[in-house]
Design a protein around this nucleic acid. Structure first.
Lengths: 112, 112
DNA sequence: CATTCATATGAATTTATATTCATATGTTAT
DNA sequence: ATAACATATGAATATAAATTCATATGAATG
């Protein structure tokens, strides 16, 4: 503790969500915070893709992609659909596009 | 490589941004992907705060907070303003709110 | 039902990142 | 100038997370 700021902190505390939600938020963004996963998600903007197509597209091993798809699926960011031996992945909902879109904006827009 | 998907991949490749942008996106979200930083950003929704107020609010050491504020500042997510011995931090622009808002929506809304 | 193909998973290794500790910098007041 | 306070920073440690390798599961086919 250093100087006084109880008045300020009271207001901030009142508007701060529960700890659990803040943790969940961090965990969610953590998932977007990896180049491989961003690439996977972005690839799925266009169409559903099978695991080996994604691996080929990104120039990575099948195992690495599978592991990351699991992370994405656990977070409900992608869905999967099996067709014979092949499993197709697609975006789970539109939040993915919106979240990435906002990030894109931050990177490309000028700040004033 | 496994089976054929050149046709599909061609279309996906055409719409995929440059590698550098995808990396930058990952790096940006990585910053949101930490509970401490999310808490700091959320705290700043309400008002600007000095370092020791944030440390007190989060129950963490001043050093840890300073390190994270540096990360946030380097990413241009927060600004700082010195007033005597005290340094006040505030959100740099509205993208922060929007990005966190989209994450919040994903967590709290029902998916259909 | 044995083989092949597509995907998934566990363990190990490597690499990155967060916090702490000690200390430096910068500001104000005596 | 010296002391006291607020913040910043470097190095070290601890923890987490990504990829690889080997192998397992699950589905189709001869």
């Amino acid at each position: 503790m250093a100087h006084r700021h109880e008045e300020t902190l009271a207001a901030v505390r009142a508007n701060l969500p529960e700890d659990e939600l803040l943790c969940d938020l961090g965990d969610l963004f953590k998932i977007f915070g990896d180049t491989t996963r961003i690439k996977i998600l972005y690839s799925l903007f266009e169409s559903e893709l099978c695991v080996c197509a994604i691996a080929e597209l990104l120039g990575m091993g099948q195992s690495a992609i599978s592991h990351q798809l699991k992370v994405l699926k656990d977070a409900k960011l992608v869905r999967s659909r099996r067709e014979g031996k092949t499993v197709f992945y697609s975006l789970a909902d539109d939040h993915v596009r919106r979240i990435i879109g906002q990030g894109y904006d931050h990177l490309t827009e000028e700040e004033k």
